[in-house]
Design a protein around this nucleic acid. Sequence first.
DNA 1: ACTGGTTTTGACAATCATTATCAATAAGCG
DNA 2: CGCTTATTGATAATGATTGTCAAAACCAGT
Lengths: 132, 132
Amino acid sequence: MKRNTWQREAVREALDATEGFISAQALHSTLHATGSPIGLATVYRALGDLATSGEADSLQSPDGESLYRACTTTGHHHHLICRNCGLTVEIAADEVEAWAKRVAARHGFTQAAHVVDVFGLCENCTRLAAGE
Amino acid sequence: MKRNTWQREAVREALDATEGFISAQALHSTLHATGSPIGLATVYRALGDLATSGEADSLQSPDGESLYRACTTTGHHHHLICRNCGLTVEIAADEVEAWAKRVAARHGFTQAAHVVDVFGLCENCTRLAAGE
DNA sequence: ACTGGTTTTGACAATCATTATCAATAAGCG
DNA sequence: CGCTTATTGATAATGATTGTCAAAACCAGT
Ligand SMILES: [Zn+2]
Ligand SMILES: [Zn+2]
Ligand SMILES: [Zn+2]
Ligand SMILES: [Zn+2]
């Protein structure tokens, strides 16, 4: 059976309090900074569980790190992510869903899943970059 | 200046001879298997260069490995990949390109790039899986 | 509230891919 | 052919993630 521990709750809350995607390492640091003695391995496990149960979304950063986020939208969706500050916008893209399904079917592929993410500079970060 | 070495050529050829995406480690093994004494670090460097120069495409496997492929299509495109045998189909997706541009603009994002990949089971692997 | 069986934790070791070092090697130019 | 310098490769270093396993924490049942 699945037990409730303050550690899991702490991870859930820390993730909720985070704007944008964050790595397991970074979340662990954040927790430590606030005085929590939670272990690193536990953070990894909790994030993995949250992702599996669908309570959190996960994706691979361009350099291969796993990033997590507590999403407000419950269903399947995608993300528009600022590569500088991490600001994230959730995107519903029926158009892309249909396309993915269609293209897989056309080539005889089954059990198709897809990775669709857009990375860019948000309005703020664009301004800041321009001011350089 | 950029020099030509048999090592770089060997990597290029091995990549050309490979159907589907392959990791640096795997390509290094393949090369060794054919008798080449090329070093692992060199394979990493060569693949990185090929990817940078646009001669090879790269993407992150679902578990975070960097995979490379010598693509026939020169321009920007995406992939439909068999997660079992690695068979890869190159896909042009103007529809998705337009969508990505549109969604970024709508939220004030600039310098938008995108990751769009479809993973599934190819026709063959689907048959094999069914026969289990 | 106490207890026992089971799950979870966490410090630490182990893995695994990738990158950094740096002395030895080999392109390419004259 | 020599010189200059980019490239190589054995190996160490890094860094994220996972495995280990005894100790601690849960929680259902008493
Ligand atoms: Zn930003
Ligand atoms: Zn989707
Ligand atoms: Zn296949
Ligand atoms: Zn595209």
